Simulated assay, not measured.
Amino acid sequence: MNLLLSVVIGYVFGSMHGSQLIGKLKNIDIKGTGLKNAGASNTTMLLGWKYGIAVALIDILKGTIAVVFIKIVLVKLGVGSDTQPVFVYLGALAIVLGHNFPFTMRFKGGKGTASMVGILLALQWQLALVSIGVLLLFALSSGFLVIGVLFMYAAFVTGTYVLYGLVPAITAFIMLALSVVMHRENFLRIYNKEEKKIASFFKKGVE
């Protein structure tokens, strides 16, 4: 029951897409246009940085709220702090799966980065601080967001193992592997020198 509730809560929250809400507001299919991704980066390129930030904030908040809600439910069910991380991490995986494969968008969503940031913020603040710091460091130094994302997940897996042990770390590694798969086209574009750098996302709508 604990596992089922964590997964269902996570997936339902994950399926609530910021790009879908903004797309309806602006009457545009964000997923089917531009980079054909339902995330903040594609929204920024199509509509400008203000709408991109709005999508990112929605997707971050849903990750944070979902994890907090899962924790509250587990406490109400009497799940102790020693076993709670296992269910919370499985719920976090469900959030990312919901974002990437939402039932609200025919199972074709985004890549989960913003939702992952929100998850980190609700999991453990030290882990969030290190992982998000690593994301910013490598994204800004390389110029490519996806590079920062890769190292963020690596820090997340390592920190999870140190704090919570093997089983949550395995779940975190699955999330890392999923991110690599979802970003495979980005890595291919970097190899072919076709990937857009971070600065290019903010050129639209700066006027």
Results as ranks from 00 to 15, higher is better:
residue 104 T to L: 09
residue 96 V to K: 06
residue 167 V to L: 14
residue 173 F to K: 07
residue 68 V to Y: 08
residue 125 W to R: 11
residue 93 L to F: 12
residue 89 Y to G: 02
residue 103 F to H: 01
residue 175 M to R: 09
residue 143 G to R: 00
residue 85 P to M: 06
residue 115 S to K: 08
residue 64 T to A: 11
residue 66 A to M: 03
residue 85 P to G: 13
residue 73 V to C: 03
residue 168 P to R: 09
residue 166 L to E: 09
residue 62 K to G: 07
residue 106 R to N: 06
residue 89 Y to T: 05
residue 103 F to C: 02
residue 118 G to V: 13
residue 130 V to P: 04
residue 86 V to S: 04
residue 140 L to V: 13
residue 117 V to P: 06
residue 122 A to R: 11
residue 107 F to I: 01
residue 159 G to W: 01
residue 78 G to V: 06
residue 115 S to Q: 15
residue 125 W to G: 05
residue 102 P to N: 08
residue 116 M to D: 07
residue 155 A to W: 06
residue 123 L to E: 05
residue 94 A to S: 07
residue 78 G to F: 02
residue 138 F to G: 02
residue 163 L to M: 08
residue 149 V to G: 15
residue 108 K to M: 01
residue 153 Y to M: 14
residue 61 L to Y: 11
residue 164 Y to D: 13
residue 60 I to T: 11
residue 158 T to C: 08
residue 68 V to C: 01
residue 57 L to M: 14
residue 89 Y to I: 01
residue 107 F to H: 03
residue 93 L to D: 00
residue 124 Q to G: 08
residue 76 K to N: 13
residue 129 L to I: 15
residue 75 V to C: 04
residue 169 A to L: 14
residue 65 I to P: 02
residue 114 A to S: 14
residue 132 I to A: 14
residue 87 F to I: 10
residue 98 G to N: 02
residue 67 V to M: 03
residue 56 A to S: 04
residue 151 F to L: 13
residue 149 V to E: 15
residue 162 V to S: 03
residue 106 R to S: 08
residue 112 G to D: 07
residue 155 A to Y: 05
residue 162 V to Q: 10
residue 84 Q to T: 10
residue 159 G to F: 02
residue 145 L to I: 08
residue 76 K to I: 14
residue 156 F to S: 11
residue 119 I to T: 12
residue 114 A to R: 11
residue 111 K to A: 04
residue 177 A to W: 13
residue 140 L to A: 15
residue 118 G to H: 10
residue 78 G to R: 01
residue 101 F to R: 01
residue 125 W to F: 13
residue 165 G to W: 08
residue 69 F to E: 03
residue 78 G to A: 09
residue 77 L to A: 03
residue 165 G to Y: 12
residue 129 L to E: 10
residue 172 A to K: 10
residue 78 G to S: 07
residue 85 P to T: 02
residue 146 V to M: 09
residue 128 A to P: 10
residue 142 S to F: 07
residue 157 V to S: 06
residue 84 Q to P: 10
residue 137 L to Y: 05
residue 98 G to W: 04
residue 114 A to C: 04
residue 173 F to D: 05
residue 74 L to I: 09
residue 65 I to E: 00
residue 121 L to F: 14
residue 82 D to K: 14
residue 85 P to W: 04
residue 132 I to P: 11
residue 154 A to R: 04
residue 166 L to M: 15
residue 113 T to I: 15
residue 175 M to L: 14
residue 171 T to V: 15
residue 170 I to W: 05
residue 172 A to T: 10
residue 153 Y to W: 14
residue 96 V to I: 15
residue 92 A to V: 07
residue 132 I to Q: 12
residue 162 V to T: 05
residue 82 D to P: 00
residue 110 G to Q: 10
